[in-house]
Amino acid sequence: MISELIRKNTGQARFSPRKSSLALILAGIGVLLVGLMFAHARFQRQADLPALGAVAAVVARLELTDLALFTEARYTRHPSQADLHSAFQDHPVALEHFPTGSIAGPPAGLRRRHDRLD
């Protein structure tokens, strides 16, 4: 009875890793995954370049000026071509009422460029 309670010495070392070892292994895996993230981004960019080139070719062939991201209104569909002076809409500088629009204006440099050209 008592002998059952006494741990038998089998001569084999029991493997019980220290918590710090586990934490360091996990940290290593974390660093590795972040490294893999950068590597994946790099390879994916290389792989996507031909596709982006094909899109750029469509832009060149059809003489497009904007991305078809926000098709809800004409000044969000073609923000670079929108009117300059219409109140409340039609230009990136103007206030917006569509959800696509935003609160702040573009950088001052952009406004200056418009002013000088227009």
Binding site: R45, L52, T71, P99
Partner: peptide, 15 residues
Amino acid sequence: GWSVLYPEYRITPFI
């Protein structure tokens, strides 16, 4: 936003 037509695209990871 209010767009009915929205392009389906995968974003290239520029990080």
